[in-house]
């Protein structure tokens, strides 16, 4: 399992715009590198990222090989109600990693 690191506030006031930072451990093998014998190392990257807030998509990203290893993202969203933030990374072969975070809004 790839290590996931999230920075999300536990609490927010209603209407507050919060910053979310999300990182996943992944080599993001570009497919452009040769191995020690000059053979190309096959590409293996995370292709999609999605953040859902109470099941509503609030942010999406699509990655190409030019995203650095251990892809990091910082983005914003407005805290509207208490609930769950779901983070989902999908690699090029459809492999999925997810993590949930509870957000309390008052």
């Amino acid at each position: 399992m790839n290590t996931i690191r999230l920075a999300v506030p536990d609490k927010a006031t209603r209407g507050e715009i919060i910053e979310i930072k999300a990182m996943i451990q992944h080599e993001m093998e570009s497919g452009h590198r040769p191995d020690e014998y000059g053979r190309p190392i096959p590409r293996f990257i995370i292709k999609h990222f999605e953040c859902r807030y109470n099941d509503r998509v609030v942010f999406r990203a699509e990655f190409f090989p030019a995203i650095a290893a251990n892809p990091f993202l910082s983005f914003f969203t407005r805290a509207t109600e208490s609930g769950t933030l779901e983070f989902r990374w999908i690699d090029q072969d459809g492999g999925v990693a997810t993590e949930l975070v509870e957000l309390e809004v008052d």
Partner: peptide, 20 residues
């Protein structure tokens, strides 16, 4: 390099990442 999809509730149109 990347595509990012935003929503009105994104609030602040600023995205950070690390690229090659």
């Amino acid at each position: 390099v990347a595509h990012f999809e935003l929503r009105p509730e994104t609030g602040i149109a600023r995205v950070q990442t690390r690229i090659r």
